[in-house]
Design a protein around this nucleic acid. Structure first.
Lengths: 250, 250
DNA sequence: GCCGTTCAGAGGTCCGACCACTAGGATACA
DNA sequence: TGTATCCTAGTGGTCGGACCTCTGAACGGC
């Protein structure tokens, strides 16, 4: 998509991109200090920083003040929190977020059932066990919950869908953290996760998809309930700035 | 996700975000000239530019040299071409891209069948007609093809899923453009689009999903064939790094 | 009325200085 | 000896102010 030559920023982006493609740079690697790198590329430090900023915004680079600049590591995600920004711009609604997640994760679960490997099953099993063990500790529980879904995404064998899921999940995360779930809910949640795990392990794609959908539907209604007794009013395009803010923060 | 206060870049991002949330800024609007805006925010122009660059990278702002900086207009998309960058980093494969698209668009078609409105149906019908009319002109055809899918995304009533689709599609676009389709293929393609349109209009979600899936599966195998048949793909910049580039550029 | 020229205003690039954070070594103390 | 504190080199962050390039529209000659 991006033109090369002219714009300095694109020159930087393409240069780093090439370094990645040739294997010269790998996830976790550090790039040279800005001053040095800028000299090597024959551009000003300011321009170099523009390019790096661009890559950082897209989640490809990870800049750490006082330490250095690194190639992003960990699960790929499209543009850190870009979804919430876009949401502010286009008025995304909470339920749309959940719907998107429900659809993605359901398919992910089905794919995981078809393509998952022993190692994935083992990880899933482990996380389920941890979930049961931390039913009394929502904070801890959430960590394993997230990991569980992340393992499924990996097991699906499609890193792109996994990245999309990661994007939505992280946008949903903040809101979710605020929902102080009760222990009884967590027990039910753990049960559902166990069901999902079993369906995947037995390579029953349809079942995995169905249970995952049930799980996420329940999670959504639980949160809706928590947030307000009133069901979400879909004004579609309403003026009320109040509602707008709500949709935005999701 | 982003901390506020300290980092200038986040101060800018949050400020603009707030302006968007309050409705002070709307898609298509122009923000003040950099020098002036920087003065108003009490920060240096460089810092302001960093923040704007961040927003631009995520597709929220649209910067035009010599003209001005605008709030993004048109269909939302997550981080312009961030997918192809991430692809380079994590080695995304072509088939994974197609799979993701197939899953997303199938669900989108189903949702469109359930929620679409008369105006959407009218647009779809129009695009189908245009497709038949431009069967002899691949360039023109492609435009209406893209529009057709975009209208379905809108009709689905879920802008988030639509944005995800847009992201994948635009990453796929370059590759797709190179595939000089023959007229006969286009005729078949138009027929399928017409089927999809009919299913949606008759609110048959299952049928819409199925036909869409068939359409995209065919499109994928057609392109695979094209790529395999012509063994001397344009290397775009000389380097023989074929296999690698393939996985990357998709 | 058409078309090339001019020009103001907007973003793009650069420089060089200085600030702020981090990690790890050097030092002081118990 | 062990531990806590301080110091410092290295790296990203911010600044401002000069200059370049691009775009669009007003201007003026034909």
């Amino acid at each position: 998509m991006p033109k090369s030559d002219t714009h300095m920023t694109m020159r930087v982006v393409n240069h780093i991109r090439t370094m990645i493609e040739t294997g010269e740079l790998q996830p976790g690697d550090r790039i040279p200090p800005e001053r040095e790198f800028a000299r090597k590329l024959r551009i000003s430090r300011a321009s170099l920083r523009t390019g790096i900023g661009y890559l950082a915004a897209m989640g490809v680079m990870d800049v750490r003040h006082g330490v250095g600049t690194f190639v992003a590591d960990g699960p790929p995600e499209l543009g850190k929190s870009s979804l919430s920004l876009l949401g502010a711009l286009h008025g995304f609604q909470s339920w749309q977020m959940f719907e998107a997640r429900r659809i993605l994760e359901s398919e992910l679960a089905a794919l995981a059932a078809e393509r998952g490997r022993e190692q994935h099953f083992a990880s899933l099993s482990e996380e389920v066990a941890e979930m049961y063990a931390t039913v009394g500790n929502p904070m801890e529980y959430l960590i394993h919950d997230v990991r569980f879904h992340r393992v499924i995404a990996q097991a699906s064998g499609n890193p792109i869908l996994a990245a999309l899921m990661e994007t939505i999940t992280s946008a949903l995360y903040d809101e979710r953290r605020k929902t102080a779930e009760r222990s009884r809910d967590l027990k039910e949640s753990a049960d559902l996760h166990r069901e999902i795990y079993r369906a995947i392990r037995s390579r029953n794609a349809a079942e995995a998809r169905a249970v995952m959908e049930r799980h996420l539907t329940m999670a959504q209604s639980a949160q809706d309930l928590e947030l307000a007794g009133a069901p979400a009013p879909l004004s579609e395009n309403g003026k009320p700035r109040k509602a707008r803010r709500k949709a935005v923060d999701v």
